[in-house]
Design a protein around this nucleic acid. Structure first.
Length: 284
RNA sequence: GGGGGUGUCGCAUAGUGGCUAUUGCAUCAGACUGUAAAUCUGCCACCGUAAGGUAUCGUUGGUUCGAGUCCAUCCACCCCCA
């Protein structure tokens, strides 16, 4: 649908997919084909290496630069994807909260060894408000808060202002909403195609990088388990399908939260394109 | 035809005659500010937004103060013998 719209507007596409950035991961991330990329210029596909991970804040900054340039030539630009948080980072902006990957890795290691207890205590005494709010069994959240508090000397609550930034362009959001059964059918098919297209070889070649967070990804984790002989190939494929379905559900949950998003009713590319163009016309 | 075994939620699974039938998975729903395809939470027999209410362990009957558990019956499935 993105490509169809980009053709119509003779414009470019930005991908907001937190895994398609990486040039080493192609089959398992279902990037647009090379032919499709020839037809339409895509940003943020193969733009980075797994060894230099892209955070939501990196994406916000880099994508804004691209947009500033491209808006000089195009009236409309298409953002496609994927990762709700990256979309929101670009559209709404992130608060300026400091980060330190090294400290975070240390904290992660600490939690693996000693559990969350002491970090929770630290959070409680330094930022009671966030302590009361946060999901206390989610190590990622706790670690991130402690990280920010230790670096800044401020509370995480104070840093996290949740201010939406104004962008020099208008944003309209559309969500493709297939009937659940059809969505799941397509996800299952997609996993089978990945295997046919050589996913196992792609994963094998990434073995030396398997500890990287970017490879903690549906389609890769399961195949690593197969290569380690932990599960059979059949089990691995079924898990890829299952975990993709779960991910798709989480995407929908994320998008549901945005009350401005428009949920599309159609199912085929052509119909969806028509529907979106109609909505854009009536919005003007 | 003879003998043996098994039936517990969508699937799998626990359940010495005694509180409210266990656990896992799936499904469904949710959270989310530099790990986000990550990480985490809840529900999950039925009715109800909820408080709460009503059921239930293949069937029917029995024993017992009390049955998923014991007995009988029938039904379904599995295994062995013929």
């Amino acid at each position: 649908m993105g490509i169809a719209l980009a053709k119509h507007f003779k414009t470019v596409i930005l991908s907001a997919d937190s895994r398609q950035f990486y040039k080493e991961m192609s089959i398992g991330t279902a990037k647009p084909s090379l032919e499709e990329q020839d037809e339409i210029k895509h940003y943020f596909i193969d733009s980075h290496s797994i060894e230099n991970p892209v955070s939501a804040a990196d994406f916000e900054r880099e994508a804004l630069e691209v947009l500033e340039n491209e808006f000089q030539r195009h009236e409309n630009i298409i953002l496609v994807g994927g990762s709700g948080m990256f979309i929101d980072a670009l559209c709404n902006g992130l608060d300026d909260i400091p980060n330190d990957v090294k400290l975070r890795d240390e904290l992660t290691l600490f939690v693996q060894k000693n559990g969350l207890e002491s970090l929770l205590e630290e959070l409680k005494s330094n930022d009671l408000e966030y302590y009361n709010f946060v999901d206390k069994s989610n190590p990622v959240r706790i670690i991130r808060a402690i990280e920010a508090i230790r670096i800044s000397g401020k509370t995480y609550t104070e840093l996290r202002q949740k201010k939406s930034k104004t962008r020099p362009f208008e944003i309209m959001r559309f969500v493709i909403d297939l009937p659940r059964e059809k969505l799941y059918e397509r996800i299952n098919l997609r996993a089978d195609l990945m295997i046919q297209n050589g996913l196992i070889d792609e994963v094998k070649q990434l073995t030396e990088f398997r500890h990287l967070q970017s490879l903690n990804t549906v389609g890769y984790s399961e195949i690593f388990d197969f290569l380690d002989d932990k599960i059979s190939l059949e089990e691995a494929i079924n898990l890829v399908k299952q975990n993709s379905r779960r991910y798709a559900k989480r995407q929908l949950t994320w998008f549901r939260r945005n009350e401005k998003a428009i949920w599309l009713k159609n199912e085929t590319t052509a119909d969806l394109k028509k529907e979106v163009l109609g909505l854009l016309n009536s919005a003007q």
